[in-house]
């Protein structure tokens, strides 16, 4: 197995990341929100992830990059245990959210997914009204006690997702009637509404046009002050624009992870170098 470089190992037992993103240079130190150790994932007999260890910082955007089929989405789905829903998938290793192993029997995946929200590749608003889409999580988790409280929650969530101005006058129309970019922001509002600590985004812009993409990227930048965001992306430019930390996956292995600025200007592994310069992938 080729030498696997992960700075969490390099830092020893107390890995603390300092992001050196230009926008954030000299910013606060970020505590570790998610700590993954030796994660292996199998789909049936096929191994999709090999001993992945990665630290994800709090209140920052971590980008997972790599060619198709490299396991970055698989890793993402480990964090909120969405791999449980795939028949034949097994996850081994530790993934700690605030020090607790998410795969522990004591952890209820339903509660976990309330803490770790997810945004998918294709916008997937439910076939309900815009209001009901955002209210969905609050309703199933019983987060609000009165109608006015629920309305306030929907409003603040839509405002945080930057969609309020566009839909305030048509909250009771179907969410599926919005444009692709609006749908994706609606889905983000839906995820925010349950006050998650972590938001996972699986190629959130791959189905969107450049303008909608720019809008989502702005939104991600605004949200990173409040949430720990992990984003899978195929666009290296996007990773460079929105993230503070970048992890490069290749063939199911984590090749290299570090501050985004460093990965893009001075990668330590030749495969990372090849990928970001467009030689493969």
């Amino acid at each position: 197995m080729p030498a696997q470089r992960d700075d969490s190992q390099a830092h020893g037992s107390a890995p603390v990341h300092i992001t050196v993103d230009r926008a954030h240079a000299g910013g606060p130190q970020h505590a570790i929100k998610i700590r993954a150790r030796d994660v292996n994932v199998f789909y049936g007999d096929k191994q999709a992830l090999f001993d992945v260890s990665l630290d994800v910082p709090e209140k920052a955007v971590t980008a997972l990059i790599g060619p198709s089929g490299c396991g970055k989405s698989t890793f993402l789905r480990c964090i909120n245990r969405m791999n449980d829903t795939i028949p034949g998938a097994t996850v081994r290793g530790r993934i700690e959210l605030d020090g607790e192993d998410v795969n522990d029997r004591a952890i209820d995946p339903v509660i976990l997914r309330g803490r770790v929200g997810m945004v998918f590749q294709k916008p997937n608003p439910f076939p309900k009204t815009i209001f009901e889409n955002v209210a969905y999580g609050a309703r199933i988790h019983g987060l609000t006690t009165s109608k006015s409280e629920l309305e306030a929650l929907v409003e603040t969530s839509l405002k945080k997702a930057g969609l309020w101005g566009e839909v305030a006058d048509r909250l009771h129309q179907p969410g599926t009637g919005l444009s692709g970019g609006q749908q994706q922001r609606l889905v983000i509002a839906r995820a925010i509404a349950v006050s998650p600590e972590v938001i996972l985004m699986d190629e959130p812009c791959s189905a969107l046009d450049p303008i909608a993409t720019a809008r989502i990227e702005e939104l991600i930048d605004e949200l990173r002050n409040q949430y720990c965001i992990v984003i899978v992306t195929h666009s290296m430019a996007q990773a460079a624009r929105v993230s503070q930390k970048t992890a490069f996956f290749h063939l199911g292995k984590l090749v290299e992870a570090g501050p985004t600025g460093e990965i893009f200007t001075n990668p330590r592994d030749s495969r990372t170098q090849d990928y970001i310069t467009g030689r493969f992938g």
């Binding site: 969405m82 997914r113 997810m118 998918f120 889905v187 995820a191």
Partner: peptide
């Protein structure tokens, strides 16, 4: 993707089916 969306919101299977 709709089922995934609902499950990822922390809904159980039966809530996903029903809602």
């Amino acid at each position: 993707s709709l089922r995934d969306g609902s499950l990822a919101m922390g809904a159980t299977r039966s809530e996903t089916v029903k809602l």
